[in-house]
């Protein structure tokens, strides 16, 4: 198991940190922390679960599509970062 971390201060938004656990082929877990807001708060678990089982390196467009899906399905509001910011952060960590 390997770990990488990355962080981003979204311009005009909030700080987002990710910690990714993975091996050479798949992502096992992603933890997202920071001073952002998600309503309802339980939505963050669903967003983190999106990454489990993704191929390494994860594709930014796939991350963005899947995060957008769970956000819409869960009727979530994220304040402080966008699915696009998150996709760029996680995919960028593997670059």
């Amino acid at each position: 198991m390997q770990y990488i971390t990355a962080e981003l201060k979204v311009k005009g938004g909030k700080l987002v940190r990710v910690r990714v656990a993975f091996d050479e082929s798949i992502v096992f877990q992603v933890q997202i922390t920071g001073d952002f807001f998600i309503h309802p708060e339980e939505g963050l678990d669903a967003i983190e679960n999106v990454f489990i089982g993704m191929r390494v390196p994860p594709s930014p467009s796939e991350i963005e599509r899947l995060v957008n899906e769970v956000v819409t399905r869960g009727n979530m509001k994220i304040m402080g970062f966008s699915p696009n910011d998150l996709a760029a952060l996680v995919a960028g960590a593997f670059a």
Partner: peptide, 8 residues
């Protein structure tokens, strides 16, 4: 905040 890492 509820999403923050206490150690960070």
């Amino acid at each position: 905040g509820c999403f923050q890492s206490i150690k960070d």
